[in-house]
């Protein structure tokens, strides 16, 4: 019976999907289960105390530093998402509507290249651009626009936001572009034939139809940015550290895996909840479109 099943088309598909599924199961689902379990245990110097307790969650609640870092992380992720998606939309729109079809893939290729090149070095170079003697300051001073170097652009939250917005730009552009490409161009002609202006056509046709892409790009920027500790470490200075830095410290320096696991879970739950709420707010744009 079972052998017969694997000879059918359906059975063969199940058989084929099992290696990647089992891989993801053992290296993703099981480890995720493990951190949830660990968050209810505690660190006893070198050993882990496996009595069930919510002490770590209590500690999170009691110590203001954790809440401060998490709040700042959510603020940074939110701002990065806002900046990235708002600045990406016109680019996606431009490539979809104003670039000749034969040149579209070249534009997308140009947009994605910087994303694939050494992340660490790219982040570091933002320090060179925004720094005290950096590109921005020295050119502005050369032009006589400012007389003293600007200091609000490095070693603080703004610097973290600029750098992350740069790193996640292609992630924001691609889903919007895909959604815009799917729009039937005859809708736009129909709208203009019926007397709508270009701008109201955009507001009433293009924007609503591209909402699924917009929501996807919000998700794909907002969720991963919470997990970055490189940019805040290099660009944030003392006041720009985020929750991911604390998770990293708990694991690698304080050797407190249970507390680190707790923070990771709380951060994850927060971004998931906010994301679901955001999807809920946009549900009327997403209905019936895959």
């Amino acid at each position: 019976m079972a052998e017969g099943f694997f000879k059918t088309d359906r059975g063969r598909a199940v058989l084929l999907v099992s290696p990647p599924f089992l891989y993801a199961f053992f290296l993703l689902a099981v480890p995720l289960g493990a951190i949830i379990l660990f968050s209810f245990w505690t660190q006893d110097f070198v050993t882990v105390n496996t009595t069930f307790t919510t002490a770590n969650y209590q500690e999170f609640w009691d110590k203001p530093i954790y809440k401060l870092l998490l709040g700042r992380s959510l603020y940074v992720s939110g701002m990065v998402t806002l900046v990235t998606v708002l600045s990406a939309y016109p680019i996606a729109y431009f490539v979809s509507f104003h670039v000749h079809p034969t040149k579209k893939s070249m534009w997308l290729f140009l947009i994605t290249i910087p994303f694939w090149t050494s992340y660490l070095i790219r982040v570091f170079l933002w320090k060179v651009i925004l720094g005290y003697n950096g590109v921005v300051n020295s050119s502005l001073m050369e032009l006589g626009i400012i007389h003293e170097p600007l200091t609000f652009i490095l070693y603080n939250v703004n610097a973290v936001i600029i750098t992350l917005a740069h790193a996640f730009a292609p992630f924001a552009i691609l889903p919007i572009f895909v959604a815009l490409e799917k729009i039937d161009r005859s809708f736009l002609e129909a709208s203009q034939d019926l007397g709508e202006s270009k701008f109201s056509t955009f507001l009433r046709i293009t924007l609503p139809l591209s909402m699924p892409g917009l929501v996807a790009s919000v998700m794909i920027v907002f969720i991963p940015t919470i997990g970055d500790y490189v940019t805040p470490e290099l660009m944030g200075g003392a006041g720009g550290k985020l929750i991911a830095n604390m998770i990293q410290t708990q694991f690698l320096q304080l050797n407190n895996a249970p507390m680190g696991a707790t923070l990771a879970i709380i951060a994850m739950v927060c971004v998931t909840a906010i994301s679901l709420f955001f999807i809920f707010l946009n549900r009327r744009w997403l209905r019936g479109r895959a």
Binding site: L27, P224, T225, D228, I247, Q248, A264
Partner: peptide, 13 residues
Amino acid sequence: VLPDIIVAVSLLI
């Protein structure tokens, strides 16, 4: 879409 640090710490554990 998962934050990398989640993948990292869960595998480390």
